[in-house]
Design a protein around this nucleic acid. Structure first.
Lengths: 222, 222
DNA sequence: TAAATAGTGTCTATAAGACACTATTCT
DNA sequence: AGAATAGTGTCTTATAGACACTATTTA
């Protein structure tokens, strides 16, 4: 059967349909800690518990547009790079009805976020990925675990977390991002050798003058 | 908004819901070529075009169970390792109604397959991934491209395609699988050094006696 | 004994990691 | 001058790849 059973012509109404939502795992770095944005549920089910922000996919929007809209509504951030994680759809994961959720991840710099506890949420807040307000609503702990695992795998494989940095940054700042994501300290000389060898950075003419020796500012090339 | 908008209580019926299908990219090796199983559509839309097999996710089954059921219905194969690829859901990808499809991939040995052109399909057949009967129905060419890219990435990263081999096999057979998946020839000594160093194979006491020097049979350990 | 496939080891190049000091600026 | 951060090079080890011959069996 391709997509819809051709034998049924296109009377799709005869099948009961699930609800489809887009949930979005929003990662940021705060206080040198990897944190996620959660909202506190106002109503049944799981009233009072914390959950990953998300909402219905509307009939006229793409899946990515739904996730972008949710991100914008929750954080005001408009141009983050979103990635699909996977779908979660066990019957019973939502006590109301069959709900299939498409999980997305986003990495954003925390200073660009304006938290909005909107009408649906009692509260919205950041939590360290290693210190979550358990239990979470629905199967959201599983989604967070998968998102964290996926992020770690990408970072270990050399994925560069552009989304977590301002446009211009020092190599020390970049190294701190990596150290936080990888959960261990890195050697400064090896890190610089490696990151510069990737050819994805270009040095600007600017430098940042702090309390001591100024540091060169870099940006992502291309 | 977590999953379903709590402000709406649980009256989920007020939102129009999309149809959700599971489509499954079934890979196999035939004649030293990577091939996929396609079915030919019997009815509008895209009547006569070839498509990836798939069907509705039923209300009481998990997403994985839906994909397994489709695989079984199309091929008779029951215990293949299925993996989620991603969701495809652009409005308009199906002219009948909004259809969000969850794409899965499976790797199976072609000798275990009994093709069944069931009631929904005019025909079912294998096609080399590099020689597809274009154009395909829906956005299925995009799904196949993504599935192929994902497979190549996994193989390059050392993923071992257990699913494509019989329970016991020679190292030469295993090497041929890798060569086909990677699209290039491999050095026999280097391949054996590498695959044995992974520690995932164990040698059986059996050997296969063909036209010439017998080859040792291996199996996956664990 | 010829044909066909199975099976084996070394050397080289590259990448990753351990490791410590000098340079510049500010107060 | 002292404190603080920026910036730099070598050696070692592990991994990946190039490369060619011997071993065993059947017809």
């Amino acid at each position: 059967m391709p997509d819809l059973d051709p034998a049924l012509a296109y009377d799709v109404t005869q099948f009961e349909r699930p609800s489809v939502t887009a949930d979005i795992v929003i990662f940021t770095l705060r206080h040198r800690t990897l944190q996620v944005l959660l909202i506190q549920r106002k109503a049944w089910p799981f009233e009072g518990l914390w959950a990953i922000p998300g909402g219905f996919v509307r009939m006229e929007e793409t899946l990515e547009a739904a996730a972008e809209r949710e991100l914008r509504e929750e954080t005001g951030v408009t141009d983050a790079a979103l990635e699909q994680l996977r779908a979660y759809g066990d019957p019973g994961r939502d006590p109301r009805t069959r709900v299939i959720t498409l999980a997305f991840t986003a990495l954003i710099p925390s200073d660009r976020v304006i938290l909005r506890a909107d009408t649906d949420a009692a509260d919205a807040n950041w939590f360290p990925i290693d210190d979550l307000p358990l239990p979470l609503a629905f199967d959201h702990i599983k989604i967070l675990e998968d998102a964290h695992k996926s992020l770690r795998a990408k970072v270990e494989a050399g994925y560069v977390a552009r989304g977590l940095l301002p446009a211009k940054f020092t190599l020390t700042q970049l190294q701190e991002v990596y150290e936080t994501l990888m959960g261990r300290e890195l050697d400064k000389r090896n890190f610089r050798k490696w990151i510069l060898s990737l050819g994805i950075l270009s040095q600007t003419t600017e430098e940042v003058r702090g309390a001591h020796r100024p540091a060169a500012l870099y940006e992502f090339a291309g």
